[in-house]
Nucleic acid binder design. Structure first.
Length: 588
RNA sequence: GGAGCUGUGGUGUAGUGGUUAACAUGUCGGCCUGUCAAGCCGAAGAUCGCGGGUUCAAGUCCCGUCAGCUCCGCCA
């Protein structure tokens, strides 16, 4: 260091017990209050804030220099810790009992005035924050988010280490696979015209590691998917990737629960009760209209199909006749909704694919509804009793295919939950969704596609043979507050079953050989039964931090158009670079 | 690919088609020895994202475009 003011203490932890000690502190000028004859500087380092007093009676030189320092200057100070005079203690500051009387000051570096406030609650434009991310990250809130992330990952690693998992790295430059998301491609210089792909997940490698006899693997793995962004989706994101041999679903679920509750304890000092509730996919879709239910509030969807079997009301009758369902929500206390509020809900329903949204306002004077005249007294009575409807309630109906009804009422339910403030934001509500369907028919491509991924084991291989559309998977998703934060499965480890799955999904033996030949071959050399899970670290930490975007828990995230305002990535490269990798661009 | 919202001094906002674009904060200068979002006095700072159009007149209305955000599609 170019001066003799080598740091002796970090700010956090300084207190009355240090009174009388000489300390040397390094950090940034958080704020400066110049009283003319006396200057206060709140000095900030990573750990915290402390008040430094510049008094000409203590050091004229330091005082004179302090008149010229500005916010975000990097300084070193030396001085004695003093208890603050009576009446000047600042209870809002961890170090508010004390202050440092500066006898020496060295300016280590000046700083331009930051383009936005660093210590305010003011909502600054996010583009600006990302462009000056190094300033944004100086803000306490962002610093806390990154610290929390560190604590969570440290806890997860510690737990897995104790449980006998080993951390193994897998390639970032790998082969493109046919299924799944769009790949990020990397041209090969050595092999003109050929490309690596960045991994969408280490899925195949971790299965190969099981064949290799590693038994318990984990990795904090970066994953890449070239799809459009959302508040909870970035083109590169971090997964805690786990794979285990000789285990079943309950083993993976139990391990995950223990691991997560410990992370909450170690990072947030919160107790999370285990085991987490489990819902089958079928239950989740029927009750919540979602495969990632937010169970922080009730308002369950109720099925009325049986009650309305013989209804004369065309909308209901037609849906039931077409093997669809009629289901409803009871929006408690919403009978007072204005026509416009109900119209808004209808519009939302239409947007979700509904043909309309039927409703009944239950009032002390009776039912108000455009559909009431189509229903018999018995039907109305049955609906009322099934939905526990009381005066003041608003009943909302959807009649269509099971899929549409689930999506519509699931969406309306979430909308109402937010609008009516039914969600306790302090909760961390976990649940498992199990027994996912294995396959889904893709009408466009006229073939089955894997709901989870093509390596997921069916619960019942015989059913897969007979009725593939009804086969369920040994797959499980972990949901936190209505957000999917993880998912996994027991994998297929037999060559023949894997071959069967591929062929159901329309892959020819040649394609399987080209794309997954190495996996298929590995399965012929003693593959143990295995399975695992991947947790979305960004989403988990986001929810733990109470944020609503994963950008707030990623040091250098990308914007919605997948660019980085700090580095300007992506950017043009030189003609020479392109030539070396045999690439010619066709734009511009 | 589509829908919506936003864009005004450095920052956050206000701004009926009509005078010199307002307020707060920050910045700069002056005063000030107990403040902690210090205070008081003063000053500078905006061609209202960009390009067209309508109009006697556009920050305001229309069209396009760019950027940011939210959502749908997409994300095995």
């Amino acid at each position: 260091m170019q001066n003799n003011l080598k740091r002796t203490h970090h700010i956090q932890g300084l207190g009355l017990e240090h009174a009388g000690q000489r300390v040397v502190l390094n950090g940034w000028v958080n704020t400066r209050r110049d009283h003319g004859g006396l200057i206060f500087v709140d000095l900030r380092d990573r750990s915290g804030l402390i008040q430094v007093v510049f008094n000409p009676d203590i050091s004229k030189a330091a005082f004179d220099l302090a008149e010229r320092i500005r916010n975000e200057y990097v300084i070193a100070i030396a001085g004695l810790v003093n208890p603050r005079p009576e009446g000047t203690v600042n209870p809002n500051l961890e170090t508010g009992q004390i202050e440092v009387f500066a006898s020496e000051l060295v300016v280590l570096n000046g700083a331009k005035t930051p383009p936005f406030y660093l210590d305010d609650d003011v909502e600054v434009d996010e583009g600006l924050r990302l462009r000056y991310r190094y300033l944004d990250l100086r803000r306490q809130e962002m610093k806390n988010n990154l610290l929390l992330r560190h604590k969570v990952v440290r806890s997860l690693r510690g737990f897995l280490d104790e449980q006998g998992f080993i951390d193994i790295e897998t390639p970032i430059l790998t082969a493109s696979t046919p299924e799944g998301a769009r790949d990020y491609l990397v041209p090969s210089r050595v092999h003109p015209g050929e490309f690596y792909a960045l991994p969408q997940s280490p899925q195949l490698f971790k299965q190969i590691l099981m064949v290799a006899g590693m038994e318990r693997y984990y990795q904090v793995a970066r994953c890449f998917r070239d799809e459009d962004l959302r508040a909870d989706r970035q083109p590169e994101f971090t997964q805690l990737d786990i794979e285990m041999s000789f285990i079943d679903e309950d083993d993976v679920i139990g391990l995950s629960e223990a691991m997560i509750s410990r992370a909450y304890k170690e990072a947030l000092n919160l107790e999370i009760a285990t085991p987490f509730p489990r819902l089958t996919y079928q239950e989740a879709m029927t009750t919540y209209g979602s495969d990632k239910p937010d169970n922080r509030f009730e308002m369950h969807i109720q099925d009325l199909t049986d009650l309305l079997q013989d209804s004369e009301f065309k909308v209901f009758a037609a849906a039931i006749k077409n093997k669809g369902v009629v289901r409803a929500l009871n929006a408690k206390g919403c009978a007072s909704f204005s026509r416009k509020e109900i119209d808004d809900l209808s519009q939302k329903a239409t947007g979700l694919g509904a043909k309309g949204l039927a409703w009944i306002q239950v009032t002390a004077e009776g039912m108000k509804s455009p559909i009431i005249k189509f229903l018999t007294a018995e039907e109305i009575q049955a609906i009322i009793s099934h939905l526990d409807a009381e005066p003041g309630d608003l009943l909302l109906f959807s009649a269509d295919t099971e899929e549409v009804v689930a999506r519509v009422l699931g969406g309306i339910r979430l909308e109402l939950g937010q609008r009516l403030n039914l969600i306790d934001e302090s909760l961390h509500s976990f649940l498992w969704v199990t027994e996912f369907p294995l396959l889904e028919w893709d009408e466009d491509e006229k073939r089955y596609v894997a709901v989870h991924h093509p390596f997921t084991s069916p619960r019942d291989p015989e059913l897969l043979e007979l009725e593939p559309q009804n086969a369920t998977a040994m797959a499980y998703d972990l949901v936190l507050n209505g957000t999917e934060i993880g998912g996994g499965s027991i994998r297929i480890h037999q060559h023949s079953l894997q071959q069967k799955m591929f062929s159901l999904q329309g892959l020819s033996p040649q394609e399987v050989e080209t794309k997954f030949g190495f996996l298929m071959e590995a399965f012929e050399y003693g593959a143990p039964p295995h399975g695992g899970i991947a947790l979305g670290i960004d989403r988990l930490v986001m929810l733990m931090a109470g944020r609503d975007s994963i950008r707030d828990v990623i040091a250098f995230p990308k914007t919605q158009s997948a660019s980085c305002p700090l580095t300007q990535a992506p950017s043009m490269v030189s003609e020479k670079q392109l030539q070396e990798i045999n690439i010619k661009t066709i734009i511009k």
